[in-house]
Design a protein around this nucleic acid. Structure first.
Length: 460
RNA sequence: GGCUCGGUGGCAGAGUGGUGAUGUAGGGGCCUGCAAAGCCUUGCACAGCGGUUCGAUUCCGCUCCGAGCCUCCA
């Protein structure tokens, strides 16, 4: 079976062939840590986590690097506003980011480099770019000279001449070309900075990823990923820097594949501070389980826009409950090995087609009622194996659905009421029986009369 | 103005040159004292207009509409 991935560089789905079959290497541009992560950050983390899981089904060794941007003007502003040292702020939000992503069953990357640990590397790259004639110093700034890179625009498919009309870029006076971007800029006191050949200053944003990806993975590596908005200018600039240093203007001398996830909208609108509709994972944690949030993020294909609404969360919550119910029904079925059917694997390998996988899991789950023993084993195997890759269905079904309430402090009271109701039912006093059921319902207790007696569950 | 990507049933969302995914909501039914859960069943969707084709939702062209990017942004 072959893995196909959409490559932003070509604009098409391509067959994935690793640079080195023995070691697949992926770099994802991570968060700038000055605030809580929002659901859009989470989508990037989940999409990449899944990509890595899928790669690991095909290749023995996969290294996943995702950085933390811990020096940036937004961080400086936030620290200033809160009157808090930058280091405290970035440490705090890095921790929170990892916790929040952990809640969504996102595993930590193998390497999580920080920009501030790579200042020397960045200074070094800047020196080399000046030496090679791709960058110049002006008024304490070092800028990358865009016309020096012949392939500028390959990734975002922009023609520079066509972009200039209608451009809203404010051109700094020290730029030789309006598109030139900052590699290093001065940090007048009290701004944070580091000593450099160009005075006390700090790096521009794009440089860190060029420095850290090369250092942690080597060049060229397989997949470079991030949110759709990073295509331009961030990734375009990274390509310009790294490829200029390589003396090879082919963007594949940097990374072979460029993997970008789509945006999350909220109730049909773009998430933005001014609208005030930013959905923080930190807040969503209070309302929804991690698996529901994760499944909702996977309910649309990763490259499509995802409209975040209460309705789709509910819809996916129901879907997840159904899967868990199927697993509960199959709890006595012994499985010896976990395997994924070729059809489902194929969907994952076809550019990570999660909606199709979910449809296939539903179809499988629907076969339960008419399944024989062998088919039941097949259903359970596939649900568990798919869940493992997707990062869902990792809980115990009884616990998930709320049946297992041995710890519930109200257990005795609830079961007392259920006994009363069953007595009433025996006496054909259905009015009383229904009244008791309503009482339980108010407590969030759902009861089910089965052949083997009444069972109950806490409805979350 | 430029570039890119989209427009699929009430909603969400895959996919395909010919046998009409999947979920959710709705209708009907089974089961149940009634429920819950489950099961069965139902809905003839592919923006519009042309073209290619034996046949197009799927390919091509045009039109309309929407989104993203061109400035920091996942």
């Amino acid at each position: 079976m072959v893995l196909k991935i959409h490559n932003t560089l070509s604009g098409t789905k391509e067959i994935f062939k690793p640079v080195d079959e023995k070691h697949v290497r992926v770099y994802a541009c991570g968060p700038t840590v000055y605030n809580f992560a929002h659901i859009g950050n989470a989508r990037m983390a989940v999409a990449n986590d899944l990509l890595i899981n899928v790669l690991r089904t095909q290749y023995k060794k996969v290294t996943y690097v995702s950085n933390i941007t811990d020096i940036d003007d937004k961080i400086i502003d936030a620290a200033h506003e809160l009157n808090e040292p930058i280091k405290n702020l970035t440490t705090k939000y890095t921790k929170i980011y990892n916790e929040d992503m952990g809640y969504l069953n996102v595993r930590l990357p193998d390497v999580q480099p920080r920009a501030t640990d790579h200042i020397n590397e960045m200074i070094d790259l800047t020196k080399k770019l000046i030496e090679s004639g791709n960058a110049y110093e002006k008024e304490g700034h070092v800028l990358f000279h865009v016309p020096s890179f012949s392939k500028y625009g390959v990734l975002s498919k922009r023609n520079r001449d066509e972009q200039i009309a209608g451009s809203r870029v404010d051109v700094a006076p020290f730029k030789k070309d309006p598109a030139d971007f900052i590699l290093w800029k001065p940090s007048p006191s009290p701004l944070p900075g580091w000593d450099s050949p160009w005075g006390f200053g700090r790096p521009g944003w794009h440089l860190e990823c060029s420095a850290m990806s090369e250092k942690t993975l080597g060049l060229p590596f397989d997949i470079h990923s991030g949110g759709m908005d990073l295509v331009f200018p961030h990734h375009e600039n990274e390509i310009a820097q790294t490829c200029s240093l390589n003396k090879n203007h082919d963007p594949k001398s940097f990374a072979h594949f460029w993997f970008h996830n789509g945006f999350v909208n909220v109730e049909g609108e773009k998430m933005s501070k001014s609208i005030g509709n930013i959905r923080l994972v930190h807040d969503l944690k209070n309302q929804f389980s991690g698996e529901v949030l994760r499944l909702t993020l996977l309910s649309a294909h990763y490259r499509q826009p995802l409209n975040w609404t209460k309705e789709i969360i509910d819809q996916n919550s129901k879907m997840l409950d159904r899967f868990y119910r199927t697993l509960k029904e199959l709890k006595d079925i012994e499985i010896t090995s976990q395997y994924l059917s070729d059809e489902i694997m194929q969907s994952l390998l076809d550019d990570i087609n999660t909606p199709k996988v979910l449809a296939q899991l539903n179809t499988l789950s629907n076969k339960l009622s008419s399944a024989n023993k062998e088919e039941k084993i097949n259903i359970k195997n596939n649900l568990i194996a798919a869940g493992k890759i997707l990062g869902i269905m990792v809980e115990d079904p009884e616990v998930w659905l709320g049946y297992n309430q041995s710890e519930n402090p109200e257990k005795e009271e609830i079961e007392g009421l259920i006994n009363q109701r069953n007595e009433a039912r025996r006496d054909k006093d259905f009015k009383l029986a229904d009244k008791i059921r309503d009482e339980l319902k108010i407590k969030g207790i759902e009861i089910e009369d089965t052949k083997n007696g009444t069972i109950w569950r806490k409805d979350s």
